[in-house]
Design a protein around this nucleic acid. Sequence first.
RNA 1: GGCCCGAUGGUCAAGCGGCUAAGACACCGCCCUUUCACGGCGGUAACGGGGGUUCGAUUCCCCCUCGGGUCACCA
Length: 552
Amino acid sequence: MESLAERLFPGVTETPEQIIARYPKRNLPEGAAVTRFAPSPTGFMHLGNLYGAIVDERLAHRSGGVFMLRIEDTDLKRSVNKGVEKIISTLGRFGLCFDEGVTRDGERGNYGPYRQRQREKIYKVFAKALFEAGRAYPCFATEEELKEMRERQKAVKDNPGYYGKYAIWRDADEERILKALDEGRPYVIRFRSQGDPSRKIIHNDLIRGRMEIPENNNDFVLLKSDGIPTYHFAHVVDDTLMGTTHVVRDESWLPTLPWHLEMFAAMKELFGWKPPKYIHTAQLLKLDNGKKRKLSKRKDPELALDYYGAEGYPEQSLVEYLMTVLNSNYEEWRAANPDADQRDFPFSIKKMSAAGALFDMDKLIDVSKNLIARMGADEVYSSLYAWANAYDPEFFALLDADPDYARAILGIGRGGKKPRKDLAVWKDAKPYMAFFYDELFAPEYVYPENMPGEDILAVLKVYAGIYDTSDDSAAWFDKIKTLSARLGYAPETKLYKAAPEAYKGHVGDVSMVLRVAVTGRQNSPDLYEVMRLLGKDKILKRLEKAADQLER
RNA sequence: GGCCCGAUGGUCAAGCGGCUAAGACACCGCCCUUUCACGGCGGUAACGGGGGUUCGAUUCCCCCUCGGGUCACCA
């Protein structure tokens, strides 16, 4: 004769002890943290994912522990083809690599399977054990019934949930259950709570410290009607079997923490299980109409990590920025160790804030500018090259056609004690470099207002005759000074300032004419360097073009 | 609405009973400078309110307020 447990959990042949034996205690040094990144394979990777993953990775790798990837695919609606591939490659770009768990072509490690769908039988074994211990029961309530119930609760201002008198299947006798089973009605397995919200439990969170939270009294779902566990149950089972020591997740999990703790308490009685350490992280917020709110997938493109790739933020910029949010002393450390590897920073949970942080794009841009300013021209070129290859074919073609030229352009003002910081993202490079390429050269001839047209024309014409590629920067500038003086402009700015009435303007004005003619705009990096790179032919053509424009 | 979390300048934040309340970003001014970028110097700007505890509270406790989160067979 088949028992009720066997009918409720068909196909369960193993015992909990057999399974537990397959997941031995890990052999790791004292204090080593085992963490896991456990996303649903939605294919959507966002800032919060990265934020949490950095914490997981740092904790594991700084302690000589293990960083694993577990895929929480218990909800089919959230699964997407290639989702896993996307997760691994995205995190990989940010320098986060897993030691264990799901991989591109399978999985690695002795604590798998690491995809929850493939662990179905394991969960059932433990659910069955809970049932047999009186800590779980089947519930045949339909969705409509539950919905109705919630409405009733709302109407009488009771707390929503499946508890107390609302737990209609909690005390069903075997006869009733068998009848429902015979009728083939779908059912879920619920946890039988013994909690009382008027009592408090003490929880020590690694970020928030000591917390007092009411006990749970909800008979929440362990196994859904398709036999797949909810997140809550899977969390308890997996993180125990896999030996997770630290669970990092965002604070929106705090409200269900009492559920998890009560499950652990039940599992402790049965199998001696203990909960991991919890790290409930603050959320990244955004200011919207003067109000803070959680970043939203629909409304905020900057939530998606793909956004930063397309804009051309170096991956490391985002990591650096997130580190400054994660550990308040990171900036100080970075200032003292400008060239150190970010991984050498003594990351600490103690330095993490419990309060939510507004995502600060200005700060990210600043961080990114500094990061790019520290790179050499070759590194800038190769990163820019890769970015353009993916996002800007026209620009890519130019970069590809003459790598040395591009590298030389990017090398202007780079490498010294006070490097230029023109670039925050790779997208900035095209407008910054555009005038170096005839294909992109789109001049706007705006000359100093104090200069009459004939003087401008004279500068353009005369200079065309005296520019010499072999001049060094001093000789080059001397020529401009001499030209200035000849036309009635002060050869030194100081002279002009001392006696403005004696001159029509100063050498800066004359330089500006040349700059505008050659670069097509009023701002540029060092004009001497610019001209050297452009070469005499281009310079002469551009001077001529500018003169033509003026004469017309 | 119940429950939970949080609260120092516009933003991120240091502070952990006694300070002229750091620093960074942003903003403004000056200097440097042939433009820009960089750099230097300086400036505006904060402990949400009320009660306690204490010789003394930004710091500890309570209440209020405000902000956020969460109340699924989603994670």
